[in-house]
Design a protein around this nucleic acid. Structure first.
Lengths: 248, 248
DNA sequence: TTAACTTTGTGTAGATAGTACACCAACAAA
DNA sequence: TTTGTTGGTGTACTATCTACACAAAGTTAA
């Protein structure tokens, strides 16, 4: 293992979203610091998955590295949602104390680049055990204490996600390869915080020729089994209409 | 004037767009370097408006500072479109030579944050004289030589602009306070590289209640004078419909 | 084996928005 | 008064959006 030199004033933070067929979740890392003598808990809050970039790696690679380290996953949807450089973003009292404590040679002034990651929950959950990493419902974030400006980063990521999801077929990144229309609908409802009429939603999906029905059906469910579908990016790219819709 | 210390490895670059009622333009700075002895031109190309951030300023302020320095304008639409951190982004042969030449203590590895600025051409043009700064039609950029990865930044900004313009009422930032519908149509056509049917376009504008007709008309034009309109952000914010339009 | 439960999956009618298309009106200049 | 130029309007057709109710296909429990 090569020791990489970090860039002390540039970091990358990942807002990692997952969907459990019920609600949208975000992956957070617990940050804890105890008084060495008394054992008193001085800091216990959460941070996004992030780290400083290395001197010999670009931003996207740094984000991918962090994601892989935490989830074991490769080839994940990962996209920038902004750069953050407020002067005081890492200098709250707890944050100062923390940086002192871990003593890694990070600068006082750090610009971070935010990445948003969408992962298929069914493929993870395992690698996380015995680490201080866990999924939290996005609705819970408002009540949590978070390090640095990470709560702000989270909400910025959330807004970016809601904007993108209306305009690009990225929601599928949060679903397994095979999914039902109901699952897709629940996902959009969770993402946008709304609810849709079932028949109208399905009519819409029927127009998306890149959402392709399979011969497979659910099995063992105590109700009428649903049909599985898959998302085809090839079909999407081919049939995509460059529609212009001014906002009214 | 206080001397600010720069951050050697973080910069901001502004892609400044303007509209002259005919086409979309971008503001570029000429970069020239001559051999000290022979006078031979070693470098003559263009860069975006950019500079390293200062230690005591955040990213948005740095972008605003750069914009003000170049155009004299304040309160300009200015929005991030990405962060760029490729390892080799400032290390082409000419770029190395240039950085050596200007010798400002910039790092070899620089992460830049791209900002896109939209300005009302009628308010500038003046302050630019006797500087190596000029407007270029965006269609001309493909044939120009540009410093660093600035051509790539430009195209990324262009795509971001085209995306945003379909979904947010930011095009108005490129027009004067009062404008005609034809000017608005030409602007959208220039931005998106398409053309629209006049009647349908005007029907659409009529639905945008935030585009408000004035009593004023054009004067001194050798044809039927057009009515002026203005954009009202207040009305926009009030009447905005949170429409969801999945892409098909 | 029947009944109860749960989720799937379907159609229609009215309203709204999108598209394609041609001509007269108002002004300046010659 | 004619010419040139841009501004400004309406209609018929199609596509999409919205609101809304009930039978079908499974499992489970009586």
């Amino acid at each position: 293992m090569i020791a990489h030199k970090i860039v002390p004033n540039i970091s990358v933070d990942c807002v990692i979203f997952g969907f459990d067929f019920e609600k949208l979740n975000v992956l957070l890392v617990e940050r804890e610091m105890k008084d060495e003598k008394t054992g008193e808990v001085l800091i216990r809050d959460h941070t996004l998955a992030g780290y400083h970039i290395f001197e010999d790696e670009d931003l996207d690679s740094a984000a991918a590295r962090i994601l892989k380290g935490l989830t074991g996953l490769d080839n994940i949807f990962l996209e920038q949602f902004g750069a953050f450089g407020q002067l005081d973003r890492v200098s709250g009292p707890k944050d100062k104390m923390w940086l002192d404590y871990i003593n890694k040679g990070f600068a006082d002034r750090v610009v971070t680049v935010g990445y948003l990651a969408l992962i298929d929950n069914t493929k993870v959950t395992l690698t996380l055990k015995d680490r201080n990493v866990a999924w939290f419902p996005v609705s819970m974030v408002s009540d949590m204490e978070m390090a640095f400006d990470h709560k702000y980063l989270f909400y910025t990521a959330m807004e970016a996600l809601q904007r993108k999801v209306k305009v690009e077929p990225i929601a599928f990144e949060l679903l397994p390869d095979y999914f039902t229309i109901s699952q897709l609908q629940k996902l959009y409802e969770a993402l946008l915080g709304t609810s849709f009429d079932k028949r109208n939603f399905r009519k819409k999906v029927a127009q998306m020729h890149y959402v392709i029905p399979l011969r497979k059906k659910q099995q063992g469910v105590p109700h009428k089994p649903a049909q599985f579908y898959l998302f085809s990016r090839e079909v999407y790219d081919k049939t995509r209409k460059g529609r212009i819709s001014f906002i009214i």
